[in-house]
Design a protein around this nucleic acid. Structure first.
Lengths: 115, 115
DNA sequence: GCGTGACGGTTCAGCGGATGAACAATACGC
DNA sequence: GCGTATTGTTCATCCGCTGAACCGTCACGC
């Protein structure tokens, strides 16, 4: 759904290709159903391939590995995300400044509305 | 619903008590139904009073004014929000630092995965 | 081999918040 | 009065998310 989720998922898979869906869902703080949905989306985009060979010791389940185009996509998303986050950061700075002024104003006239 | 919404609404009403619900909803970026719901919640908490006297030139609709306890509540929420936002700010700083490092790493080995 | 238990992927009925069209109420101009 | 415009209120509908249930598969013990 969100591309925040997509990005986080790609990020996770890049470092940890052999994690099961339940654990991935828990780590990203989303439901199993949603994770499965996102994963299928990444796979159908050709960014992730589900190799059905071994998960380390245990032979069950898939290993979800980024394809070359998945790696490129992750790079693009990383940069896009950096920019977005910096913008958020600056806006948050603004909001905080405004809030600080409001709090300051409150402390100037602390008795207003009390009894 | 969210107390972000509640706070924003109190904030708006404190400065602009005579705005109709449709416009309030548009300004907060939420639907009319949700705004109405939130407003009723504030009213039933006793934080806002809907005086049915004049909106400036036009006599229709209500003027939604903060009660004394509404003013107090707004002060509390303002402070709580400041703290929350500062925490978000710091976490965002962290995330950005991580993203910067990732981007840097990408630029060190830019040919990976290309052909 | 067969049975069984455990694990992992997939599905989907159900939930809950959000939406905004439609309705009700009120004020105004005529 | 009547029609119109403006505003508050409701509620059927939508839509994404959830997680329990389901199914397939593998590993182990026999």
């Amino acid at each position: 759904m969100t591309d925040e989720t997509r990005y986080q998922l790609l990020r996770r898979l890049a470092t940890n290709p052999d994690t099961n869906q339940r654990q991935l869902a828990a780590e990203l703080g989303i439901s199993l159903g949603k994770l499965n949905y996102c994963l299928q989306a990444l796979i159908s985009k050709g960014w992730v391939k589900a190799g059905n060979f071994s998960r380390s010791s245990n032979k069950k389940g898939y290993a979800y590995m980024l394809t070359p185009s998945g790696i490129e996509a992750k790079a693009r998303l990383t940069i896009a995300f950096l920019h977005r986050k910096v913008a958020e950061y600056e806006q948050l700075h603004q909001e905080i400044e405004t809030l600080r002024q409001e709090v300051h104003a409150l402390q100037q006239k602390p008795a207003e509305g009390r009894q």
